[in-house]
Design a protein around this nucleic acid. Sequence first.
DNA 1: ACCTGTTTAATTTCAA
DNA 2: TTGAAATTAAACAGGT
Length: 420
Amino acid sequence: MEGHEHPDWSTGTGTGTGGGYYGESECYSAGVNMNSYMSAPAMTGTGHMNAHYVNQVGVSHGSMPAGGLCQSPGAVVQAGAGITSLGAGLPPSMSPISPPPYGNMPVMSPVYGQAACGIRSREPKPYRRSYTHAKPPYSYISLITMAIQQSGSKMLTLNEIYQWIMDLFPFYRQNQQRWQNSIRHSLSFNDCFIKVPRLPDKPGKGSFWALHPDSGNMFENGCYLRRQKRFKSGRKPDTGDKEAAGGKPGSSEVGSVSSTSDSDSPHSSSSPPPPPPPPPAASEVKAAGVELRAHRADLLPSSPVRMPSPHLFSHHHQHHHHHALLLHEAAHLKPDHYPHHPHHPHHPHHPHHYSFNHPFSINNLMSEPQHHKLDPVVQYGGYGCPVSGALVAAKSGLDPAHTDTGYYRGVYTRPIMNSS
DNA sequence: ACCTGTTTAATTTCAA
DNA sequence: TTGAAATTAAACAGGT
């Protein structure tokens, strides 16, 4: 089928296309949402720049759903932009500094075209390849996380995750069978994702997927391609179980979870106790602890609250109650977005479905679903933090534009270790 | 039947 | 180079 992979872009893997991830031409405007917190301050050291994902695809000016983003503030962008790079981007988070809780994933949007990038793209790169869409510098885990984060209810069905990804990244409109299988694998295999059952009365295709409350910011290191360590549920922060890594996700740990959720939780301090657990049909608690937890109040979506590191967000409202939906509620309300039906085939060409919240919206990412623009969203032009990237580049002397293949290679090499 | 989830396993890629 | 994370494939079980 259709799936034939093109060696070129599609898999970055093997070949070396150099890297595989996007090439030079694509500009995704990223919407990074990092919170403001992230101001791009210092990228200390590492600079990295990577390539910019500029997607020049079609450019639909105008309409971008996401488009909103561009318009806004750009301040940031410009800042960085100094460099012209339109892209410049790295995921915001790359910014070293703030390790955002998961609230800040960079979500970019494919805004095709400059528009988004705002920064006018100048500098047509010499070589714009035809990679129409290169592979985004995010791992599947990152993508899933971003998708979930940006949803108002903080949980999405598998299909919604697929759609979000495809809408944002043209790259993933290809070889669907391949990456979707990987997505499924990632969801099941990684403890950071939990399955939230649908309410009985709301039948539908699959369950909802949410982030494990304790997963925290898995990308604190700023690297969206690879986490330093795989999140394993069951591990308690202080107890001695640190490692966990060795163990396979099999079962045991998972099982233990149940308790975990309650007990440990780094909860946010201020957040009120979790709402009553709506027992969906919990009856079937599957063996898998995970799921359980899901319904367990802990992770209620409401919990944006549960941000693992509330402090980070502190400024933000922590009381998101209004949004806090209970799982079941959430279920009732449709996931959030789109009005479409489950199987509704989205047309590739319009990303608009997501008008609700562009991925860029910081809000979304944060925890606030869509209040649209409440604050200056930081918009970065490129994938992520343009600013930083740009700056860095500048400092480094690299051209942003230069994009090396390894977009991230140099980039985030910084493990944020403890800055604290 | 097709979609969703799980799981095993091989391989690739990255960061230390 | 190495260990671990990520990707890809694929078999298989359940649901709808």
